[in-house]
Design a binder for these strands. Sequence first.
RNA 1: GCGCCCGUAGCUCAGUUGGAUAGAGCAUCUGCCUUCUAAGCAGACGGCCGCAGGUUCGAAUCCUGCCGGGCGCACCA
Length: 552
Amino acid sequence: MYATEQLRRLLTTALGELGLPWPEKTTIEPPRDKKFGDLATNVAMVAAKSAGTKPRDLAERLRTALLAADGSLSAVDVAGPGFLNVTFAPAFWQRTVLAVAEAGPAYGTGTSGAGTKIQVEFVSANPTGPLHIGHGRGAAVGDSLARVLRAAGFAVETEYYINDAGRQMRILGQSILYRCRELRGLPVDEPEDYYRGDYVKDLARELLEKEGPGLVNLPEDEAVTVCRLYGEQEILAGIKKDLEDFRVHHDVWFPESTLLAAGAVDKTFADLRAKNLAYDKDGAFWFATTTFGDDKDRVLVKSGGELTYFASDIAYHDDKFKRGFDVVVDIWGADHHGYVPRMKACVSALGREPETSLKVILVQLVNLLKGGEQIAMSTRAGKFETLADVVAEVGADAARFMFLSRKSDSHLDFDLDAVKEKSMDNPVYYVQYAHARVCSLWAKAAERGVVPAAATPELLARLDTDEDLELLKLLEQYPDTVATAARTFAPHLVSFYLRELAGRLHRYYTVNPVLGADDPAVTDARLHLLAAVATVVKNGLDLLGVAAPEKM
RNA sequence: GCGCCCGUAGCUCAGUUGGAUAGAGCAUCUGCCUUCUAAGCAGACGGCCGCAGGUUCGAAUCCUGCCGGGCGCACCA
């Protein structure tokens, strides 16, 4: 039982004996200052009014009841305006070692999401070019969020939406064809709006080799189609490989074109029209998103007959809900934030409660720095602009940890030099080092023939120093951290937790000798404690998609 | 002009959704390797939480108005 739950249970009982209900606004949380005990609650202040007593008087009565309740509390104090400061007995914390050992990789998982089907859609970059570093951040956040939600008990499916229909793909085809003609020495004018990256030239060269030079003599439409299909296939394969190298997994790759082929878009249009939410005007087909609070109505079919991006997005989200997801998470670049209201409107029109069933996570742009200077992120930037280059340069672990070390909606400076450095500028090593240190300690113990006695409450009672208790309390807090990260869709909380846990471990390591302890029982108890730390570090790193090496 | 996000130590950022004397890391300075990995630890320095009001027992957190930064406001994606 977690400390907060334990205390909540004890308080509920105590309040009940006084004939009081559990007040809605009660908080139970660790106080800022450790001298106030393990947990503090404002329950007496919140309940005082309805009880008709002064907060401090009520607090005193609760204090007496709590101390009488059971042996898990060693101290209860009334402080300030009526806070109850509670200290748990060491034995309560020591049990955490057993809980971690018993659960192993499952320690930290919970059931708060049980029974809820949730989809996380992320990256979903158009297959018109390689992923860049901004996509990398979205990839890390989405993948890690999926892991966190899974740990919280949600049934999670991850998905990549492939925008393989529409204008951008045609432009890709035209861009490749343009390069093909150029390579064949044909006189061509540079198109206005086309993809200029070197990868387009590479694709053109490969395609010419594969198809033969006759390609450039095909009728325009036919040639563009050949180029488009080839480009899409190759680029998508590259994207998949880049994500794989980044340890990012999508369960489903969902092509936009299948929606069109299945008539889903037409069906959605008909539904909207039937509900009086769509209309014709100025030769275009409009969706009345203002009905749901959007600034203006949005076009679904342009007067030229072409679909807007938004049109298939509605059909796509309709499809998501029809697949049975209770909650749909979209991870977007923050520059798309203006899109949120119309997407919420779209969800309303589909008959869903937008606040609960659509969660949009905005991921801020990444500033790529080298030697303290910003590297431009546009088309013709330096060689580090692609995700693949960055991962090759600094490694997937360091890159992922960096991406997950900030709230997703705050700007992130990604300093290539700092991320490569094996120092505190680069917290990933700090955390991994904690894991490696423990592993190496156990290896050293085995080398010396130390076989720790089984972890029993009696043995673990030897964990009684300040550092022991601090570490134990932090371990106990881990499941709560995971649950909060899931509830608030904030995987970065895990990385902050890990930094703190690693810090405690390093301090512990410096202050408390393990193999060198005077008493073999203390050595054994400490080995068990540190094994628990290693398990939690590893579990946490798993949620971030970062490796936990045994040696460094 | 309208909308969204942000403003916390010199720098980069946390702050558990309203709690007690506001926290980390980096940088700077001072210590700690004959002993389990110094990729480490301890200590010092550093703050009008953008500004001004309001809400209440209590505000970095909530509401309003300014100031400053970013991003959006297409029959683009």
